[in-house]
Every structure is written in structure tokens, then in C-alpha cells.
């Protein structure tokens, strides 16, 4: 080993050690838990734990609520990712316009929800979404839409929470997009305009390819984020109404921490991990095809 290599190991070693202790080891332990029937009875007496192989997984597939949670999570992701990224991109494009004044102010104002506590904002939004006294229903009544029971109707609860989540998180990607947009070559934009490209064509053929890699990153992060949605339904609806907002992570939390079925909860975690990995792989494939990576 050369001196340089020794120095490199000296720098990397501690980080690797800590990572393996606080990350790799727990993950391995969780994988081990997933093939046992660790439950509250195991806490009573450790010889109550048994190796059950894939039984946790087959049991999960027999549990209607797990399927429900999977379905809800996918609904959240399918609707939420385009909604959140769309809102971020739209806001970033608006902010990027040369005619907008007080840009720093708008940036801060739109970014603020992202850094506010989720519980505090959720409580405010619960008032906004209140069926009888809520601002949202009040605004809707102006355009003749009857009162919507946002958090009480199983069909309206996911849109209601998505509205809140989008408002809460779009600021982050907006800032990322603003940075990416400032890198779009001005000459190219002017050339396109001189060639008679419309506003949409300029966006489609100049802006979009330039921010492609950023868009991919935002999509990967958003998909992973939405698949792990937890605190918003936990605070806003506690999984209700009629379990329409129970997400996979919420289900896992309930099984694992509330009822201490750590065997089954670890199995859920493993499934979620595989899902996120699969989706991210697909996304990177798509990214490669467009040469964004």
C-alpha cells in the first residue's frame, strides 16, 4: 500500500465504518427480521420467535389492507409526482421570466412551505379543507361547486392530501428548476425565437432538453418521496376515511411501531425497497435513452 492509498483509507475508513454500523447492519437485521414472526409475544419471551421463511410475505398478500395501502400509494405517486413536478416547473418558469419583479421575495415565499413543520401546516390545512367552514369550499362556492367533504369522503381524501402535499413540497424542486433554467443558453433561445418558434416549441425543444437531467433527478426523488408518504396522512386523516389514505409506510408504521409486529413490518419495508429500486431503475433507463445521464 502506498502512502497515498493509506491516506485515502484513513479518510474513507471511518465513514465506511459508521455507514456500515448505522446503515448496512440495520438493513441486514431488518432483512433477517422479515423472515421471522417477531411480534409482541417475542418481547414477552424470546423463544416465541420462529423462522417462518416467506410466510410474512404470503400473509401480507392475504391482507386486504396491504393491497389497499399499495393501491393508495400508487395513486398518490401517479397523481402526485406529475402534480408536484408540474407545479414546481410552472412556478420556476414564471419566476424565470424577465418581467417578474421582486424575484427573491417570490422565491422565499414559495419555498417557505417546504421548510415549515408538517404538523403545523397540516393543522392549518385541516381548517382550510373543513367541509362547513373551510376556505377552499368557500372559494368553490363562488364558482357554483357544492361543498366537498374533503377529508371525510373516501374519494376526495387523496386529492385533498395531494393538494396539501403539492403545496408543501413544490418549492424545493422549484428552486432546483430555477437554477437549471438559468443555465438554458440565451443565444439558443433567441435563435429559436428568430426562427419563428412558438412559446411551446421553444419550451419543448430548447428549455426541456436543457433541464432534462434536472427533471430526471426531480422525478426520481419525487417518486421515492411519494412512495414513502407518511406524515401527511398520519396528521391529516390518520389513514381514514375508510382507510382511503393508508399508505404502505403508514401500514408499516402501524404494524411495526404501534403493534410491534416487527417481522411483518420488515417484510413490508423490504417490499417497498424493491418497489422503489425497480421504479428508479426504470427511470434511469429512460434517462439514459434521452442521454440525460
Amino acid at each position: 500500500m502506498t502512502r497515498q492509498e493509506r491516506a485515502a483509507w484513513g479518510f474513507v475508513g471511518p465513514v465506511l465504518l459508521i455507514t456500515s454500523l448505522v446503515f448496512v447492519l440495520p438493513v441486514l437485521l431488518a432483512m433477517a427480521l422479515a423472515v421471522t414472526d417477531y411480534s409482541i409475544y417475542a418481547m414477552a419471551a424470546s423463544d416465541n420467535v420462529r423462522f417462518v421463511g416467506a410466510a410474512n410475505f404470503t400473509e401480507l398478500l392475504r391482507t386486504p389492507l396491504f393491497w389497499r395501502a399499495l393501491g393508495n400509494t400508487f395513486l398518490f405517486a401517479c397523481l402526485g409526482v406529475p402534480m408536484a413536478i408540474g407545479a414546481s416547473l410552472f412556478a420556476a418558469l414564471l419566476l424565470n421570466d424577465a418581467t417578474v419583479r421582486w424575484k427573491p421575495f417570490w422565491r422565499v415565499a414559495l419555498f417557505a412551505p417546504y421548510v415549515t413543520s408538517v404538523v403545523a401546516t397540516a393543522i392549518v390545512w385541516r381548517f382550510v379543507l373543513n367541509t362547513r367552514f373551510g376556505l377552499l369550499n368557500y372559494a368553490l362556492s363562488w364558482v357554483g361547486v357544492g361543498p366537498v367533504d374533503w377529508l371525510g369522503d373516501p374519494r376526495a381524501s387523496i386529492p385533498a392530501i395531494l393538494l396539501f402535499v403539492t403545496w408543501k413540497i413544490f418549492g424545493y424542486n422549484m428552486i432546483v428548476f430555477t437554477a437549471a433554467l438559468s443555465a438554458v443558453p440565451v443565444e439558443l433561445m433567441e435563435a429559436a425565437r428568430l426562427d419563428g418558434a412558438s412559446r411551446w416549441e421553444r419550451f419543448r425543444h430548447v428549455t426541456l432538453p436543457a433541464i432534462g437531467p434536472t427533471l430526471l433527478l426531480a422525478a426520481v426523488m419525487s417518486v421515492a418521496g411519494f412512495l414513502q408518504l407518511f406524515s401527511e396522512p398520519y396528521v391529516m386523516t390518520m389513514g381514514g376515511p375508510a382507510q382511503s389514505t393508508v399508505t404502505v409506510l403508514y401500514f408499516m408504521f402501524d404494524e411495526g411501531f404501534k403493534w410491534w409486529n416487527l417481522g411483518q413490518a420488515s417484510a413490508v419495508a423490504l417490499i417497498l425497497f424493491v418497489l422503489i429500486l425497480a421504479l428508479t431503475t426504470i427511470q434511469t433507463r429512460i434517462g439514459r435513452r434521452y442521454e440525460w445521464l
Partner: peptide, 9 residues
């Protein structure tokens, strides 16, 4: 009312 505790604040 068909209401949850989160709705009847």
C-alpha cells in the same frame, strides 16, 4: 354525521 375525529375539530 358520517364524520371522523379529524373532521369534527
Amino acid at each position: 354525521p358520517r364524520a371522523l375525529s379529524t373532521e369534527v375539530q
